[in-house]
């Protein structure tokens, strides 16, 4: 029998990441510090408020954004239940992580999506990368996050962003590509350059689709923030993780219900915001 040597794929990737860590860890660690500061500020701002005030503000905001009684009541009673279950600190910590991760994901995803829609080569490079990113099990991202950012919340944010950015890119690009051909021709026929076409026609028309992408990004961010509890993200995911390790079924489900409540509120509110732009 001929012996086929095993291809050292894993070793190669490991070597690459180690090399990256050796040469760039100073940058990522610095970045980590900045993020940590921002995150702490946001988190303490959220926790500084008394829970009842936060709940009222959140409900008012929901009403203002959606004009739906059901969703507003969901926000009001859902958050009240979370407070009652003594999961308030964990919940605000999770919300802060989701907000930061989503913002970073959108800041990266929307511009990349626009570039992918505008330039074929970008599209051709980005698409396979996104395919890999979306099929790779989420847990795998946790591993390289640690050497770059150290255990903790910033590593959690990094892996969350990697996990949550694909829909923002894909749907931004899709929204722009879906603008009817005749409208694009019209913009051209009336002398628009590429930039004017983007700003005056494509982005406004793509907004509902981009909002759908943002919605998905938020949802993915939430689910990843929970998983990232394994590398020290704490929050509601941390409660679940603790409950698993100690086999505390009640606590586990309570934290789980907290996550469901946050997810439902975010989803309903974002969907309304997206569809309202679409409606008129």
């Amino acid at each position: 029998m001929i012996e086929i040597p095993r291809i050292p794929l894993g070793q190669g990737i490991e070597a690459l990441i180690e090399w990256l860590v050796d040469h760039f860890a100073f940058a990522t660690k610095a970045f980590s510090k900045v993020m940590e500061t921002g995150l702490t500020a946001l988190q303490s701002a959220l926790q500084f408020m008394p829970p009842w005030l936060f709940i009222i503000i959140a409900a008012a905001l929901t009403w203002w954004l959606t004009r739906k009684r059901g969703v507003t009541l969901l926000t009001l009673f859902g958050l009240a239940l979370v407070w009652n279950m003594e999961l308030w600190a964990a919940t605000t910590s999770t919300i802060a992580l989701v907000i930061i991760s989503t913002l970073v994901a959108i800041l990266i995803g929307v511009p990349v999506g626009i570039l992918a829609a505008m330039y074929k080569p970008v599209d051709k490079t980005v698409t396979p990368i996104l395919d890999v990113m979306q099929t790779m099990p989420a847990f795998v991202y946790l591993i390289p996050a640690i050497p770059f950012f150290g255990l903790g919340k910033v590593a959690a944010i990094f892996s969350t962003v990697v996990f949550a950015v694909p829909p923002a890119i894909r749907l931004t690009s899709l929204g722009i590509k879906q603008v009817p051909r005749e409208l694009v021709e019209c913009a051209e026929a009336f002398g628009s350059n590429r930039w004017q076409r983007l700003i005056k026609l494509e982005l406004p028309l793509a907004t509902p689709t981009i909002m759908a992408g943002v919605n998905q990004t938020v949802m993915l961010a939430l689910s990843m923030v929970v998983i990232a509890a394994m590398i020290g993200a704490k929050g509601l995911g941390g409660e679940v993780w603790k409950a698993i390790q100690r086999l505390e079924m009640g606590n586990g489900f309570e934290a789980g219900i907290g996550i469901v409540i946050v997810a439902m509120i975010l989803d309903r509110v974002l969907q309304k915001v997206g569809s309202r732009k679409n409606g008129k």
Binding site: P180, E182, A189, G191, L205
Partner: peptide
């Protein structure tokens, strides 16, 4: 060139499309 073409379109060529091509927003 591109610039000249855009200028020409704006100064001399109005176009009307089959499905109106109005910007809905």
């Amino acid at each position: 060139d591109d610039k000249g073409l855009r200028e020409l379109r704006l100064s001399k060529l109005g176009m009307v499309f089959q499905n109106f091509a109005l910007f809905p927003h």
